[in-house]
């Protein structure tokens, strides 16, 4: 099915968007001296108290910030990387005091866990995996899934961490005959994991048994799209992909996200929603994050746009602040906040 069959969400004009949907809560002013590469949130326990903390990453340093009050943050731990630069933070759900990071140049070469020893609170890092790593994702129940190699020597591994983040258990998932590029969790079916491949397929695994359940080819119109999130509802999979198409048309506007519905039993799929920019706004998807029913994207114009996937339209636009384009956007995993980052390292925290 082509994108032409997809239902097009309403394109409200910019002036109809409620600017009150995003309220600035606090700011981490230029926390690092070099270019910011990622931001995330996590729970950190100190002296028996769990606190929602922020993790910032630039190429050679990862920092943990704890809240001093509702407006201010204090840097409490820092991990340094002198040999291989940091590419991304990999948050692991349901675990305290453990951060994972992916390191490499253009492609991921290492995954490391960052910890603090309980005795002297000194920072340490543990190499979890090295090699030609194609994709990595933290999933519920303290698990980390990664794929290494290409289709003929591909290995897909799931690590399970102990509650304190220390020891781990390893299991292999059955690889498909195509190279896996990205993973996505399935909300509503906790033991299901989705993957996208180089040949434009979506694959489903059973995380508990390691079985490969299905390989489904999707229309080439979705080529090069990354799956950000999937929802299992009423026997169907609703899959959120970013829209790789740069074309803007009168009818579609500028599509940034798209939603496909897939019947996992028959592998049949159809496009159901296009998330386009409001009229008068231009820009393509640069990077983004989807949590529950909200999708956020940094656009090539430097603006951040947010869509409510249930309403089917854009609900907020955040233009560059102080003439600085946005470069990062992440939903907080610990509350309903949005973390927006600028290239110079400034992080702004908004309530949505």
């Amino acid at each position: 099915h082509s994108t032409e069959q997809t239902e097009i969400a309403d394109l409200p004009a910019c002036e109809n968007l409620n600017p009150g949907n995003l309220q600035l809560v606090s700011e981490l002013k230029n926390p690092s001296s070099s270019c910011s590469v990622d931001v995330s949130t996590m729970w950190w326990e100190r002296a028996g108290t769990k606190e929602p903390c922020i993790i910032t990453a630039c190429e050679d340093v990862v920092s943990l910030w704890k809240p001093l009050n509702s407006l201010q943050w204090e840097k409490v731990h820092t991990w340094h990387f002198t040999e291989v630069p940091v590419l991304q933070i990999v948050p692991v759900p349901d675990v305290c005091n453990l951060i994972c990071v992916a390191l490499g140049n253009l492609e991921i070469r290492e995954i490391r866990s960052l910890l603090c020893s309980s005795g002297d609170e000194s920072e340490k890092q543990v190499l979890l995996k090295s090699g030609d790593i194609k994709a990595v994702l933290g999933v519920t129940k303290r698990r980390l899934v990664s794929s290494t190699g290409t289709f003929c020597n591909q290995q897909i591994q799931i690590m399970t961490f102990a509650e304190d983040g220390s020891s781990k258990d390893e299991q292999l998932l059955m690889p498909p005959d195509e190279t896996v590029l990205t993973f996505a969790e399935v909300q509503g079916t906790q033991e299901a994991l989705l993957g996208t491949t180089t040949m434009n397929s979506i694959v489903i695994w059973n995380l508990k048994t390691g079985q490969l359940l299905k390989k489904m080819h999707i229309d080439d119109a979705y080529q090069a799209a990354v799956c950000h999130r999937a929802y299992s509802e009423m026997g169907l999979l609703f899959v959120v992909l970013n829209h790789p198409c740069a074309k803007e048309s009168q009818a579609l506007g500028s599509p940034v996200f798209q939603m496909l519905v897939i019947n996992p039993k028959t592998a049949q799929s159809v496009g159901v929603l296009l998330c386009s920019l409001p009229q008068g706004q231009a820009g393509r998807f640069l990077e983004g994050d989807v949590k529950d029913h909200v999708a956020a994207a940094v656009l090539t114009s430097g603006t951040i746009a947010i869509w409510d996937l249930l309403l089917g339209h854009c609900t907020a636009l955040l233009p560059p602040v102080s003439d600085q384009s946005w470069s990062l956007v992440k939903w907080s995993g610990t509350d309903s906040h949005l973390l927006a980052g600028q290239k110079d390292g400034n992080i702004f925290i908004y309530r949505y």
């Binding site: 059955m174 079916t189 033991e191 299901a192 489903i204 059973n206 048994t209 079985q211 490969l212 359940l213 299905k214 299992s232 009423m234 026997g235 169907l236 519905v261 897939i262 019947n263 996992p264 039993k265 028959t266 049949q268 799929s269 159809v270 159901v272």
Partner: peptide, 21 residues
Amino acid sequence: ITDLGPISLNWFEELSSEAPP
């Protein structure tokens, strides 16, 4: 959505029982 063939609410369990171990 009607073009997608028969829908099963237990698709995950059914595919798990059909797939090779």
